[in-house]
Design a binder for these strands. Sequence first.
DNA 1: CGCTTTTGACCAGCGC
DNA 2: GCGCTGGTCAAAAGCG
Length: 317
Amino acid sequence: MDCSSYINTSLDLNIIPYRAHEEVPKKEVESNFFSLGMTNFSVKNESIDELEEELKRVTLENKKLVEMLSVVCENYNTLRSHLMEYMKRNPEKEVSTSSKKRKSESSNNNNSNLIGINNGNSESSSTDEESCKKPREEENIKAKISRAYVRTEVSDTGLIVKDGYHWRKYGQKVTRDNPCPRAYFKCSFAPSCPVKKKVQRSVDDQSMLVATYEGEHNHPQPPQIESTSGSGRSVNHSSVPCSASLTSPAAPKVVTLDSTTSKNSKDSKSIEPRKDSPKEAKVPKNLVEQMATSLTTDPNFRAALVAAISGRLVHNN
DNA sequence: CGCTTTTGACCAGCGC
DNA sequence: GCGCTGGTCAAAAGCG
Ligand SMILES: [Zn+2]
């Protein structure tokens, strides 16, 4: 198991499209390789042991990097949800069908929107097939129902999806088509914020949480520190590491990033997103968070992000 | 002490 | 009308 995990990890690392995080650890790696080469020249037998040792260290670095990646993914998805909210509010004409009935829910299925949220673990992100195919029809974007597939550990029994908002659970039901219970959440800002969400495990993959969001937040995210412990470094929004390919409408298969090895039960069942270990404070994490917060609340930045991502979406189609 | 979670009761569509 | 099912309410319990 571990071996395969390691392999996956390094594979992920190869995919990492951004460089900001790489630089510091990369130096270490390079120096490791360098000393490794030196050793190789001098004694061959012992170099094998050292090789293994260096391999371990490099693997460790890989894990760190993957952790960073997951952090960045989380940040990205937070930003993305902000973006969705913004885009939906922009053409805001039809505020609410205020559909709480099943029939209207099914009728709303047209403009349902799939988004991915990184739960610190693997995540998948996909946008709705139809509404994205025709971004010209801006009116499709104002979908009030979005769906997120979140990958968690099977051992994690909690139905908690960290998306940056505070939720209050108000119900739980076992549905007929799924042995796993479904949890109902309301935004903690209710009733001023009418957003609700349902979270249920996928029938096929018990490690997959399906979160269905209804409505849009009419408030910024609560001052929640969103980086996971340890590796919160800089926030690099320029790349889109977590965007996954679209799902076929019938089979919601999702592409996931394998970062399960990096999150050794650190965040598995706690809503608390941070348990900052003081050791890792070499980097002014608070500064980074401040920057991220100011960015996410800056309408100019959001507008720019909207433009960039919508352009990307158009280009993809 | 205030907030959240739990959990059974209750209510409203829907199919028959 | 009746039963099934999904969604919500609200009192009690739990937690920091
Ligand atoms: Zn809200």
